[in-house]
Structures are given as structure tokens and as C-alpha cells.
Design a protein around this nucleic acid. Structure first.
Length: 774
DNA sequence: TCCTTAACTGTTTTT
DNA sequence: CAGTTAAGGA
């Protein structure tokens, strides 16, 4: 039998075999979607399609890397272009920059740079923003861009003061971006879509160039992406979209679920294939997911099924506090690992918001469980990295005012705000870039000789660096560091933070060297920068490394793990409070839960804590309404260390449904893990370990105590008890010495130097510090 | 101009 | 609570 089809079910084969014409593959979670896509690419190649005619688009670098690897494994030597939408947009824009008023060396601003630019535009234009924050305005602009509304076509809506503000800010912002030859993330799609729309010749050229287009996660496309795809599928309508409406979780980013729901009317001749067999999860997991998602009205019903084993019931656990939650999850993982039943990498913990990771991290650290946290864009966002890269940006694109602003006084060279304002004013009136203005500082009014000297010195420095543009990236960065003496101030101070920064800079140099090694020859600065701009830390996620993975539910899409914990399944968190008043948004939150649940292969635990510290405040929580929508007969309820606090209504259902309730009260901190299928022995291990680690964790037991609980004074010492030079102890960092004090009362802060942890600052009333020896 | 300190504020998800 | 901005002092 043909190896390409050997391991595929009939529906999968049908999709793989499809060559010409539009196709929609509705693929449930775990249904082998990526396999279908990669096998289809292989099939197309075998049918004689040239590889340069195939374009595969994904949303994340991680997804595209994986697809590229898998295509490579299937057809050795194949070089099909697999890219993210944004990368694809960037590449087209470099080719056709002139069409949209950019230069080919344009800069891509990350959210941060874009936000700064927006603020500057508002300030410089003295635009009255009526109490709307730049974030609000930026969000509105982004929304407009995602809907393909350009600055010149934006119309304020009557009765919306925000839109009136946006109508003013948006064009000014866009103009400023173009003047700097820069784009924000949204522009990467907007410009391309616009260009295709307005230039018939370009459109048909690209339509012909990419005869076969495959799109992953089609349910997440926004209007701009939709137009891009449609425009390139007119003469050659071989668009194959893969997706699952139930996994559309990016509506807030402009994703339009209607794109997939209406695919069939867009392409009447479309072939529709449904992949409904799940190869990933147990029946329990799948039934819980399925039951939940059925509550959504806006969807295409699917009949998910699996031939996998029934599996363990999905566990729903109530904890007293978030610390209990974190601790017992960490304990459980540690035990499973210690018993050699599982490895750290088998586990994943998901949460709705990044802020929830803190206590989990602590729990895992205490247990010595290795973990990795997936956070967006961390490395390249760090100040020191951005500082250095800003010089690179400026070398690559001297018109980039944002980079000039960032570098002009970094490291400090005596160029203050006033000076910068005057320069900017001069640049603006003469319609030149900030860097050009800096070169001509002599002509700028109101600058004292010292300022002129500093500014022209800066311009000369940048110009000198600019001659390096064609060098290897490591050399460029190395020279920047040397010429700007960026590291000097960091080396004097030896605070932990400074050391960290230095280490990060070293890492950047290593990163650059590795990049250089991968490239032949020099002159790839722009490519390096583009990587930095478009890369996301998720892409660094290493499935090989043996660590527990923690991430947001959004980041979890496309992944799978043997054991999954979803924490804080609470009203206001999942569904998030900002979605709670809107049925459409509630549905998206439900899909988010669905995505999380369906990542689990064998074992799934949902949990909530009766009380949770939020925004510095202790709150009583309400379990998520989604819990009520799940089939109880598939679930096991476990209470840990708290009084009854089921989701409302569940008590009533108690008799009707067969699900057992295990009550575990304070006096006996044990987990009824025996119920959990793994067998008695493991359960016992879990029990003792948890019992032990729970000792000494004070837990409030009754609702009365909880609601009346005053903020707990952690130390029992008043802030004034601490004096300069005093030796103190910290539960985590050990002994240390107070090197500085400031403020008084609840604002009193101390800087403590620890033997091991370096210098740290504490707000005394909140800190666990104790005078030593007491 | 720059650094420290105090007040303020805003909170989702990310290419 | 944390991160950021505004104000004030050297």
C-alpha cells in the first residue's frame, strides 16, 4: 500500500488526495490535522506541483517549524515555503515596499514601540484624547486595521467619543509610522491586503506564484488575512483551509469566526472534509469537552468520537486557597515523577491569565520540579536587549525615529528631554528624521553648546556604526557595545539586576553568533532583526526538555500532554470578567476552555480555589459556570481542605446523577487518589507526601472566618522596628543585612543585602522579614 | 540633567 | 501587587 495513505483513515485520505480546487477541512482536536496537511503537501509534490507554487501559512512560528520539519521528514529535501502570516506579510512588503509608501528596509515595531509612537503622536499633535488611555486608543486602531479600515477611511461613529479620538489619532499615527518607514504588527497584514486589493497586476502575479495555498487554523483569520487569501485564490482557487470553529480563540485580535463558517458560501465548489475521530484523548476527556462546547450556538456541530479507552474520570478539585492548589498540584507531580510513573514533561498546567502563574511557580520550585514557563516575547522585550537592538534598527533604517529616541540618551550622554523635544520639533518642521536633525544640531534653535556637542557626537557615533551595516551580526552588536560603552554603568554597580542585564547581553551576543553561523556570509542584519521582531518565546518551547510546562490557555493551542491541569476555573477568570456580559465573548471563553481540555491525552484535572488573592486583595471566588455545563457522570469531585462550596446547583444534582463526592476536611488532609485509577500504591505515596507538606500551612476553614478575615499582618513587627544595619532573616533568602531604609508606616521599605540572593527591596508591612535571632 | 521617592493606576489572551 | 509616571531634590 502507498505509504502516504497507509496510516490514514478514509476522511484523512480524502483530504490528502485532493489536488485542485478549494477545500475546507473541519478538524476536531486531536484528529490528525497536521498530518493531513503535511501528507497533502507530499501528495501535491508527487502529483507534479512545483514546490515554489505551494505556500503553507500558520499563525505561530512554532506551528510552521513543526510543519516544515514534518514535511521534510516525509519528503527529504523538500523546500516548501511554510511561514506565519506575519512573516509572509513582511516578506511581501520588502518586495513591494514602494506600493504602500515604505522603503524595503522598513522596521517592524513591536507592541511596545508602537505604543510609544502612538503616545508621541498624541503629545506632538496636542490631540485631545478625552480621558482615553493610549492603550484603549491603540486597541481601537488595531481593531480597525484588522477589519481592513485604513486611516483615511476611518469614520467616527456617532455617539462614540472614542471613535472620534481615534479618527484624529489614527491618521497621524499612520503618517508617523510611514515617515519612519516602520510598520506595526497589524500593518504587516493590512498593507499587504491593501496592496493586493488595489493593484490588479500584483494580485494576479501573486495568485499565479502561489497556486496552492494551505492555511492552518483558519478559524483564527481576521478580515485582512481573509482578503489576502481570497485575493491570491481567484485565478487559482486552490485554497485549502484547515480549522475548527470550536477552537477560535482570537476574536479579540480581530479573528472573525465567520470566515470559516462562511467558507462554503465563499467557494461554492468547495470540498468539505470532516475529521471527527480523535486520536489524542480518552473518552472521558472528550465527552467533557464535547458536552461543554455543545452549549455554544455559533458553531458547526461535529460528532467527535474516539476509539481510545474510556480512561479515568476528569477530576474537579476544590481547594481552599490558591496556595493549596499550587502546592498539591506540585506535590502530585513530584510524586508521580518520584514513583517513575511519569516524567516532568508529561505534565502541563494551564491558566487563563499569566498573573496566575506565580503561586504555581513557587509550588513547583519548592518541590524541586523542573518547569518551563511559556510567556510571550520575553527575551527580546528586555530593556537592555531592546536598547542594543535599537542601535541595530537605526543602522538598518536611519529614518526610524523610535529607534533614535531610544538610543539618543542610552547610555546617558547628557541629552535631556528639553534637547530631544527641540530636536524633534526641528525634525518635524523640516520633514527630516530625528537622526538627520541630530546631525544638524547646530542649526536647531535653543540648544546650548554643550547639548549641540553631545547631539552631534551621538549622530557621528550612529553614522560610524552605520558603516558596519554589511558586517556579521555579532560584529555589529559587539561594536555597538564597545562604541557606546553600554556595559560600563552596569559593571560599576553590582546589584543583581545589573548582573542580570550583563548576562542577557552576553546571551544576545551568543544568539547573534549562532545566527551568523547559520547564515552564509554577512549582510543579514535585517533578517536577524526580523527574527527578533516576529519571534515569540512560545517558539522556543522545547518539547524535548524534560520539564513541566506552564502556559496560558491561548498558548496551549496545538499542543498535547498526557496530564493536564487547568487551574482557577472560576467565574471572572474563566470566563474572564471582561467577557462575562457578552454572550459572544462567553462563547469564546468556552472555546478557550474547550481548547484547554482537549489538550489532555490521559488525565485531566480542573480546579478552583475557594479564596484567591487578586490584585493584592483576598477574594472569595465563585466556581466557573462552565463547570455546570460539564457531564457530572464523567467527573470525580474532590474537595481539599475546605467546606462545601460546590458550584451552585450541584448539590441538588447529587442524588440524580451517579457521581460520587469525596469530602475531605481539614482534619485529614488526604487526597482520595485511589479513585484515580492508577492503583493503590501510588495513592498512598501521594497521601503521605501531601499530608506532610500541608502541615504548617494555616488554612481558614469556615466561611465566617473567611469573609471576616482582616488582612493578615505577616510579621508581627511594626515597620519601625527595622533599623539601618540590622541583620534580618527571610524565609527564602536566609539572613541578610538592611543596607537602606525609606518611607514610613506602610510605605516603609528596606533594601536588604543577602548573602546568596543579592540586594532586594521590600515593603516592610508586606514582607516576611524578621529581625534575626527572634 | 538625573536620580530617588511617592503616588497612581490598571489590569486577558498575542502575532 | 507591580509597574509606571510624576514630582522633587541634588
Amino acid at each position: 500500500m502507498d505509504p502516504l495513505f497507509e496510516s490514514l483513515n478514509p476522511a484523512q485520505c480524502e483530504a490528502v488526495r485532493h489536488v485542485e480546487g478549494p477545500m475546507l477541512v473541519l478538524a476536531g482536536p486531536g484528529s490528525g490535522k497536521t498530518r493531513v496537511v503535511t501528507h497533502r503537501i507530499a501528495h501535491l509534490l508527487r502529483e507534479g506541483v512545483r514546490q515554489s507554487e505551494i505556500l503553507a501559512l500558520t499563525f505561530t512560528n512554532k506551528a510552521s517549524d513543526e510543519m516544515r520539519t514534518r514535511v521534510g521528514a516525509l519528503i527529504p529535501g523538500a523546500r516548501v515555503w511554510v511561514s506565519t502570516f506575519h512573516r509572509f506579510g513582511a516578506r511581501l512588503l520588502r518586495e513591494y515596499a514602494g506600493y504602500v509608501g515604505l522603503t524595503p528596509n522598513f522596521t517592524i515595531y513591536d507592541t511596545d514601540d508602537a505604543r510609544q509612537t502612538l503616545k508621541r503622536v498624541i503629545e506632538a499633535g496636542r490631540i485631545k484624547t478625552a480621558h482615553y488611555s493610549p492603550e484603549r486608543i491603540a486597541a481601537a486602531i488595531s481593531q480597525a486595521k484588522n477589519q481592513l479600515i485604513t486611516a483615511d477611511r476611518y469614520e467616527p461613529r456617532i455617539g462614540s467619543p472614542l471613535s472620534a479620538v481615534v479618527a484624529e489619532v489614527y491618521p497621524a499615527y499612520q503618517q508617523r509610522l510611514l515617515a519612519s518607514s516602520a510598520v506595526d504588527f497589524d500593518d504587516l497584514l493590512l498593507h499587504v491586503a491593501n496592496m493586493l486589493y488595489q493593484n490588479a497586476d500584483v494580485r494576479s502575479e501573486l495568485d499565479a506564484r502561489y497556486r496552492f495555498i494551505l492555511v492552518d487554523e483558519y478559524q483564527d483569520t481576521n478580515r485582512a488575512q481573509y482578503v489576502m487569501l481570497r485575493a491570491m485564490s481567484v485565478d487559482n482557487p486552490n485554497l485549502a483551509a484547515t480549522g475548527d470553529p470550536d477552537q477560535s480563540i482570537y476574536g479579540w485580535r480581530g479573528a472573525d469566526i465567520n470566515n470559516i463558517l462562511q467558507f462554503e458560501s465563499d467557494f461554492p465548489s468547495v470540498k468539505v472534509v470532516r475529521l471527527e475521530q480523535n486520536y489524542r484523548s480518552t473518552q472521558s476527556v472528550l465527552r467533557v469537552a464535547d458536552q461543554l462546547i455543545r452549549q455554544n450556538l455559533k458553531r458547526k456541530a461535529k460528532g467527535l468520537f474516539t476509539e481510545n479507552a474510556a480512561g479515568e474520570p476528569v477530576r474537579l478539585v476544590q481547594y481552599a486557597t490558591q496556595d493549596d492548589e499550587a502546592r498539591s498540584i506540585a506535590d502530585e507531580i513530584a510524586n508521580e515523577v518520584a514513583a517513575k510513573r511519569r516524567r516532568p514533561r508529561d505534565f502541563a498546567i494551564f491558566y487563563r491569565v499569566n498573573a496566575l502563574s506565580r503561586s504555581l511557580e513557587r509550588g513547583l520550585r519548592e518541590q524541586g520540579v523542573p518547569y518551563q514557563m511559556i510567556r510571550g516575547q520575553e527575551f527580546y522585550q528586555r530593556k537592555e536587549i531592546k536598547d542594543v537592538l535599537a542601535y541595530c534598527q537605526l543602522i538598518n533604517n536611519p529614518r526610524d525615529d523610535q529607534a533614535a529616541l531610544r538610543t539618543i540618551n542610552t547610555p546617558t550622554r547628557g541629552i535631556g528631554r528639553k534637547t530631544i523635544d527641540r530636536l524633534a520639533e526641528f525634525a518635524y518642521t523640516h520633514r527630516i528624521s530625528l537622526l538627520e536633525a541630530a546631525r544638524e544640531a547646530v542649526q536647531v534653535d535653543g540648544l546650548n553648546p554643550r547639548a549641540v556637542k553631545n547631539v552631534t557626537g551621538y549622530a557621528a557615533l550612529v553614522d560610524r556604526l552605520g558603516q558596519l551595516a554589511g558586517a556579521a551580526v555579532e560584529e555589529i552588536i559587539g561594536t555597538i557595545l564597545a562604541e557606546t560603552k553600554y556595559r560600563e554603568p552596569l559593571m560599576d554597580g553590582n546589584s543583581e539586576e545589573d548582573l542580570n542585564r550583563l548576562a542577557n547581553i552576553e546571551e544576545l551576543l551568543t544568539d547573534a553568533r549562532q545566527f551568523d553561523d547559520r547564515r552564509e556570509g554577512n549582510g543579514h542584519l535585517e533578517e536577524y532583526l526580523e527574527n527578533a521582531w516576529l519571534v515569540n518565546e512560545t517558539d522556543d518551547w522545547q518539547s524535548e526538555s524534560d520539564k513541566v510546562t506552564m502556559m496560558t490557555l491561548h498558548a496551549a493551542k496545538g499542543l498535547e500532554f498526557p496530564v493536564v491541569y487547568i487551574v482557577a476555573v472560576e467565574q471572572g477568570v474563566l470566563p474572564h470578567e471582561r467577557s462575562i456580559n457578552d454572550e459572544e465573548q462567553i462563547e469564546e471563553e468556552r472555546r478557550l476552555a474547550f481548547v484547554g481540555i482537549t489538550r489532555a491525552k490521559e488525565r485531566l484535572q480542573l480546579s478552583y480555589a475557594v479564596q484567591r488573592d487578586f490584585r493584592g486583595q483576598r477574594r472569595r471566588t465563585v466556581p466557573s459556570s462552565f463547570l455546570l455545563e460539564m457531564p457530572r457522570e464523567e467527573m470525580e469531585l474532590v474537595e481539599v481542605g475546605a467546606d462545601h462550596w460546590y458550584p451552585p446547583d450541584w448539590d441538588d444534582l447529587d442524588d440524580a446523577a451517579g457521581g460520587e463526592v469525596h469530602e475531605v476536611h481539614d482534619d485529614g488532609p488526604h487526597f482520595d487518589v485511589g479513585e484515580f485509577g492508577a492503583g493503590g500504591e501510588g495513592a498512598r505515596v501521594a497521601e503521605t507526601a501531601q499530608g506532610e507538606s500541608w502541615k504548617g500551612s494555616p488554612r481558614l476553614t469556615t466561611a465566617a472566618k473567611l469573609s471576616g478575615a482582616a488582612p493578615i499582618e505577616p510579621s508581627g513587627y511594626s515597620p519601625e522596628d527595622f533599623v539601618q544595619g540590622m541583620t534580618v532573616t527571610h524565609p527564602e533568602h536566609g539572613p541578610g543585612k538592611i543596607v537602606a531604609l525609606s518611607g514610613s508606616g506602610k510605605n516603609r521599605r528596606a533594601t536588604v543585602k543577602f548573602a546568596t540572593a543579592g540586594e532586594r527591596r521590600f515593603v516592610l508591612v508586606h514582607s516576611p522579614l524578621r529581625p534575626a535571632g527572634k
